[in-house]
Write a protein that binds this DNA or RNA. Structure first.
Length: 127
DNA sequence: ACCGTGACGGTAT
DNA sequence: TATACCGCCACGG
């Protein structure tokens, strides 16, 4: 596991060392072609209520870690970046390459699939 | 130590 | 459905 941050922040039980590792692992576990919400990842990383920390972890993660960050969306299925921004377009492109389409900043419902966004988005997750 | 700022989320309006 | 608020937590000024 790579060093996430210099010693400065590694002092409290809530610091990055373990939490961050779990977060990145959770994101890496999202199946290709599916997506998950920041809050979902936080919960999976045993950090309920700390969705913002997921965003932070992804931001500071080096590209070399190859984390599938594009599979992480807001709980309402919308892209977290401002529409039109570089990151926004990049995420849409990456998702499209996995068969996930985005309309107006929000992940589109699968034509024949689930009736609700949740069923589509989180469907692959075990029940 | 205080405070504003987020790749957030849930509830109320 | 779309906003507005407020709770959340780590960072940086």
């Amino acid at each position: 596991m790579r060093r996430i941050k210099p010693a400065a922040t590694e002092r409290s039980p809530t610091d990055c060392r373990d939490a961050c590792a779990r977060i990145l692992a959770a994101v890496a576990a999202i199946p290709r072609g599916t997506v998950a919400a920041y809050g979902e990842i936080a919960a999976a990383a045993r950090l309920p209520g700390r969705a913002r920390m997921v965003a932070w972890a992804l931001k500071q993660a080096p590209p070399s870690a190859r984390i599938p960050w594009h599979r992480v969306l807001r709980s309402d299925g919308r892209i977290a970046f401002p529409e039109g921004s570089d990151a926004f377009r990049q995420q849409v492109a990456k998702l499209a390459r996995e068969g996930v389409t985005v309309v107006k900043g929000r992940v589109a419902r699968r034509n024949d699939g689930a009736k609700s966004l949740d069923a589509l988005l989180w469907g692959p997750r075990r029940e």
